[in-house]
Design a protein around this nucleic acid. Structure first.
Lengths: 228, 228
DNA sequence: CGGCTACTTGACATCTATCAACCGGGGTGG
DNA sequence: CCACCCCGGTTGATAGATGTCAAGTAGCCG
């Protein structure tokens, strides 16, 4: 369904959006482009705009008072970068590679969303998906060893990418090791070592900017979460 | 606002629910009572019913294939125990002490919720709150030491309880150490030791079924999350 | 070619898990 | 009524995993 529809509202709505609603969303949207490393918005800011991701991967993260980072999630095309109804951003968003987003004036978007049962339903479904994803991640961070964390991350990441795509074994990893570490609650050295260990077990192969899964899914190492 | 309105729909809707909507919710609701330790629903089950919590504390948890537990969240009165629109439960719910819930036929509730913009808004707001709470917890599990985890848990737990209540220093802990451990990604011995350590530092005092916060909030140990 | 950045690898320190003993209260049954 | 047991909790000794610090490598861009 997704592959070639690169305009955010289309991705968000999928097939289930009415013509005129899609048109209104498009009217409200301004396409914006970001380069690798640029900040899209910052934690704590008043959310004047809402953002939907059209292309690329966005890192959603928090900065703790002592300088530690934590990556809350990675956003893929079709995702909102934050709940569009919230007044303030509760995390920062940064581009990981080139990124295209749709920017919406948040107040107008809010009014529009809240006026349409259909769009409200889509937004609630999005929130529910994100909630479930966050709870899966909680389970992983809470009860996993480093090996489980990395293995599960790779499998889940591949599953998210593979939606629609003929599931190639090659999984691109556009984010840096440090980001993976911050996402999994590990240190980057541990991520590096664990990837090396998985490669030694012939479960993966490291390639530039990605990995090949060569048996990881059959290995029982990855927790059974986030299959959806 | 909450204190004496013990019937779930009232708690969920707060002041912002219309008369007839509240009436309809009450019509759909069946009050049910559970004793300590009883299971309200189990992960994976088809969700025939939806549940709203009226009284008590409910532990939402997952059971991993190898027997490990992970507590995804603790629900308080006014919370739904799961998103009422989901077809299946993605975690189990167990009573921690005596609990009163409202049971709804899920299909009917879904139809009703989806027919009302106002109720949809409330549900979306609930989902957004839960999502933020989950993300706060992710940050904690990802970047915290045992001491930070326990300290933050105590402060957040107290803040959730204290809504409205004159913020007493006494915080009830109706759940067992094991549940706290499963919630924080620690072992129960570590929780016990860490509580003892905090008591030695005169930041808390352990009392039967609870703790007194005696300086923990000023201590900078607790992460600044979940203040809302 | 040089320097930068991301990444890898190694040696060691620290923290938490593990295993085990022990404590104390509540309930049960003799 | 008391003894016992069971369960939740605490405490101690040890081991194992991950973090920390440091050196070194590889690829990229100027």
């Amino acid at each position: 369904m997704h592959p070639n529809l690169t305009f955010f509202p289309t991705l968000f709505c999928g097939a289930s959006c009415e013509r005129h609603e899609l048109a209104e969303l498009k009217r409200l949207a301004t396409p914006v482009y970001f380069e690798a490393g640029q900040t899209i918005f910052s934690e704590g800011e008043r959310a004047e705009s809402a953002f939907g991701l059209s292309r690329g991967v966005v890192r959603l993260y928090r900065l703790l008072p002592d300088g530690r980072h934590h990556v809350v999630a990675f956003a893929l095309p079709g995702d909102f970068l934050a709940m569009p109804l919230a007044e303030c951003f509760s995390f920062s968003a940064g581009a990981t590679g080139e990124v295209s987003v749709c920017r919406f004036p948040r107040e107008e978007l809010k009014r529009f969303v809240q006026s349409s049962l259909n769009i409200m339903r889509l937004l609630t479904a999005f929130a529910a998906r994100e909630l479930q994803r966050a709870q899966d991640q909680l389970t992983l961070l809470g009860s996993g060893s480093a090996e489980e964390k990395v293995a599960t991350f790779l499998v889940c990441w591949r599953n998210r990418q593979a939606h629609g795509t003929a599931s190639s074994r090659a999984v691109p990893l556009p984010m840096r090791r440090q980001d993976i570490a911050d996402f999994l609650g590990l240190k980057l050295e541990t991520v590096s070592r664990t990837l090396a260990k998985l490669e030694h077990k012939n479960l993966i192969r490291l390639v530039p900017n990605g990995v090949l899964l060569t048996g990881l899914e059959q290995s029982r190492l990855a927790l059974n979460i986030g299959v959806s």
